[in-house]
Amino acid sequence: MAESLHAWPFFGSGVLLFVLGLHALVTRPHLLIKVLAFNVMGSGTFMVLLSAAARGSGEPDPVPQALVITGIVVAVSATAVALALMLRLYPILGGAGLPPGPPED
């Protein structure tokens, strides 16, 4: 159905999404952007997984699809906990940005 050439654009964009997410996670201080960065990294990984599976001709491999569905559900759960924790932190931090160094408690 789709020969190897077909998968290449998505391989590249999957890798770029992963790398952009990683870079944003490290450099952007705001917690909401960090949570978005996680999801973008996850989507990048899933894109790499599924484009590899789409390279073969014939029936696409069901296992990566199952893995990606599991990954999406796990990602939404982790996002929900991260957002709930961020909302609890907001009154303490004031700006919802992580202070750079560990607090000198």
Partner: peptide, 15 residues
């Protein structure tokens, strides 16, 4: 486009 309709549904609904 990558031939994974289930994942497309899950991404649209959950993602």
């Amino acid at each position: 486009r990558l031939g994974a309709p289930d994942v497309a549904l899950a991404e649209a609904a959950i993602g």
